[in-house]
Design a protein around this nucleic acid. Structure first.
Lengths: 258, 258
DNA sequence: TTGGCTCCTTGATGGATGTCAAAAGGTTCC
DNA sequence: GGAACCTTTTGACATCCATCAAGGAGCCAA
């Protein structure tokens, strides 16, 4: 499970599995000597599908960069309900915020979605690096700030938006990231459901509704957006502010509609 | 509305309205000269009850320290629904995370709860200070990290916990902060309801239920905790893990019970 | 005191989403 | 190819909480 830092090191791009480490914003401001130093305390890891990386509450002395596959971050409730907090994509780091805590423990559990390859970094090492590099500090603070904004948005979504709205917002994100109106969902539907804080049954029904409305079409894992305009309206209800009620596109989607 | 920096400056404690600026973790690592520098670009503000400080989307070039009263941070949905994200207490700063963004805009609106006194600081000034002070950077990163953890916990609560559980957790926090089993709620019930992501009616009913159960007693704004044990059980359902179902204290609280 | 606020409470009802159960596809492994 | 298994879908029903409407309760002003 735990390998060594056996990837090639050379000045310039540091490639591991087609992911340039420098493309991660945290590492982009490091010079070659610094990268080398971080690398020396790093390990490459391979995880099988569903393999656990750490559990909520574990001591947190390392952080991670995903180079291949996806990592699911989640929390469990007493009765075994699972809430997926985030799905980390290749090229992104996670758990690095914890290095600033006194007695850091992971606030979430992490498991592999499919086969995953990642690199782990030693918190103490990285803290040393931070202590001599203001650019890096600012990078880090910027990244923490963005994550904060993301979570605030998330809370907004959970409290002020409906399940359908969240679904549409996700589909719009997906579409814009892919640049195509047809794309595969990047995780099993059950996982996406949990990410959107709904049950798989609800997820399925909402997709069905959107398809019945002619807004999307669904074939297995593939989604095609047929009516981008209506999808975006459903995703961002604020876009119709200012219109008179009778002029609103009022695309009601009763839950149990067939 | 906007005053000048007319509070006394002297080495050592920097008091403004009985709040020592140094007691805020961000400022605690600054020496006198640095404090003085920050102060020079700061302003004291007074807000009347309900007065707005900034709106979601406004350009964010200052951050704030509350010295008296409370600030409500919230987001609005299209239909006017309001979600209180946080209630900032005296001695605490807010909106400082934004200084690391390119084109910072506030992700929430802020208004006064009651009469409020606060100090605003110039982001650019503070960034200069950060750029020469690693301790301060680490303070800042630590604070951002804690805020992140708080938000993750919040999402957990919203998705995995019931309204009653959230209420109990809040009451336990309240109680432990006050150190008394009897205490006043620190904000109008309607605001607390929104903070807990429920409607005022639901808030009222849950308090009623807890009172009927004999767990608390409520007199206006004052709450007395009668059965701390049961309150904590309801707040942290994980505490009863491992017990056989029939041995669980099964304090059902049907919603419409009278 | 009385009126007019605003905030809170209480009751009746409804709706979005969860739950439970079963069927329908897909995948993997002999 | 088919058996076992998992994921997804579908249906019937339950529940939590929101909504709507009305009634108290405290507070301030005249």
């Amino acid at each position: 499970m735990e390998g060594t830092n056996d990837y090639s090191y050379r000045p310039g791009a540091i490639m591991t599995n087609n992911v340039d480490i420098r493309s991660s914003s945290l590492f982009s401001v490091l010079d070659d000597a610094q990268i080398k130093r971080v690398m020396q305390s790093s390990h490459m890891l391979n995880l099988a599908d569903r393999q656990s990386l750490f559990e909520c509450g574990d001591e947190a002395d390392r952080f991670y960069l995903v180079t291949k596959g996806q990592i699911k971050l989640f929390r469990l409730s007493v009765n075994g309900d699972e809430k997926t907090i985030d799905i980390i994509q290749p090229g992104n780091t996670f758990a690095e915020a914890l290095m600033f805590m006194e007695q850091p423990t992971y606030p979430v559990s992490a498991t592999a979605l499919g086969k995953v390859q990642l690199i782990s970094f030693d918190n103490a090492q990285f803290l040393n690096l931070l202590r001599g590099n203001f650019d890096l500090c600012f990078r880090m603070m910027g990244s923490l700030c963005q994550r904060l904004r993301g979570l605030v948005k998330e809370i907004d979504d959970l409290t002020l938006q409906s399940a359908t709205t969240r679904m549409c917002a996700m589909l719009v994100n997906h579409m814009e990231r892919e640049g195509e109106s047809e794309f595969p969902l990047q995780a099993p539907k059950g996982v996406l459901a949990s990410r959107l804080s709904m049950k798989p049954e609800t997820f399925s029904r909402i997709l069905q509704n959107l398809a019945n409305e002619g807004i999307i079409e669904v074939k297995g894992q593939n989604v095609g957006v047929l009516d981008e305009c209506r999808l975006k309206e459903s995703a961002h209800p604020e876009s119709v502010i200012g219109l008179e009620p009778e002029f609103n596109c009022n695309h009601q989607m009763p839950f149990h509609q067939r």
